[in-house]
């Protein structure tokens, strides 16, 4: 099949950027979307032009490095799928597609479809962990975890940190990402000792990074390649409110 691509080209963070049109003839339906772009890039290099820069690594939908908008939808038209796992059989001959980077103030564009998502790392660094030094753990089976709790925690922990939720949200909110980590740890006994401070610190950090607020639109859940549920956001809000009552100094800090 033949596909026409309009790709956002932007040399660096300072450049204004704009769309450029490319032709992808001879696309096989067994190709992944990124393999199709590889072929386009080989052609660009042969023609002495700069290839399209896009992030990717594992190409099996788990590392979370890839992702861009395909005609306005984060990771493209197939639900529950990262762009590296999206295959061309989901498109048809003659399709014209528009590829854009994640658009959010907290994710500055580095080049073309590549953005800086280090804000996510800083949110985790602010509290997305259990403080347990190597060597200080008790026997694994000494902590009983009810199977339903373990399963729910796993559902939340499946987040790959790709940023699609932010890109899809009209407010560019990182609530789905942040709440997935808060939920994962709040659902497990191991996460209880730090549950309150984790909720406060992570939400505070998320706001400081310049992400917008959640207004329950649900776009994030719709595009999440790991199908993380927005009930995690409800859990985050509940934990945050409870923690705010319990931890007044933290609330005072937030009011500053």
């Amino acid at each position: 099949m033949r596909i026409t691509l309009n790709v956002w080209r932007q040399k660096n963070a300072q450049d204004k950027g704009g769309f450029e049109k490319y032709d992808a003839p001879n696309v096989s339906e067994d190709m992944s979307f990124l393999e199709m772009l590889d072929v386009v890039n080989e052609g660009l290099i042969s023609a002495g032009k700069d290839p399209i820069a896009f992030d990717h690594d594992c190409r099996e939908g788990i590392c979370g490095m890839c992702g861009f908008m395909i005609s306005g939808v984060a990771h493209g038209p197939e639900s529950g799928t990262t762009v590296c796992q999206l295959h061309m059989r989901k498109f048809k001959d003659g399709d014209e597609l528009w590829l854009e980077p994640w658009r959010a103030k907290a994710f500055p564009v580095l080049r073309d479809l590549t953005v800086d998502r280090s804000a996510f790392d800083r949110i985790i660094a602010s509290g997305g962990f259990v403080s347990v030094h190597t060597g200080s753990a008790i026997d694994g089976n000494a902590i009983a975890v009810p199977k339903p709790a373990a399963d729910l925690a796993m559902d939340a922990a499946a987040c790959i940190g790709c940023g699609a939720c932010v890109a899809a949200c009209p407010n560019a909110s990182a609530s789905l990402f942040t709440s997935a980590k808060i939920s994962h740890l709040a659902l497990l006994p191991q996460g209880q000792p730090e549950r309150d401070r984790r909720a406060i610190n992570m939400v505070e950090r998320m706001n400081a990074e310049g992400f917008g607020h959640c207004t329950n639109i649900g776009e994030c859940e719709a595009v999440c390649p790991k199908e993380i549920k927005i009930e995690n956001i409800a859990r985050m809000n509940r934990d945050y409110i409870c923690a705010s009552f319990k931890d007044r100094p933290a609330v005072a800090r937030l009011a500053d």
Binding site: V130, G140, N141, Q190
Partner: peptide, 22 residues
């Protein structure tokens, strides 16, 4: 054996039996 203990303590959501054990 220490690795499993450490990872459980970190909150790694290993698969569980209904009794809560690994």
């Amino acid at each position: 054996v220490n690795i499993i203990d450490q990872c459980v303590a970190q909150g790694v959501p290993f698969a569980r039996e209904y009794g809560g054990v690994l």
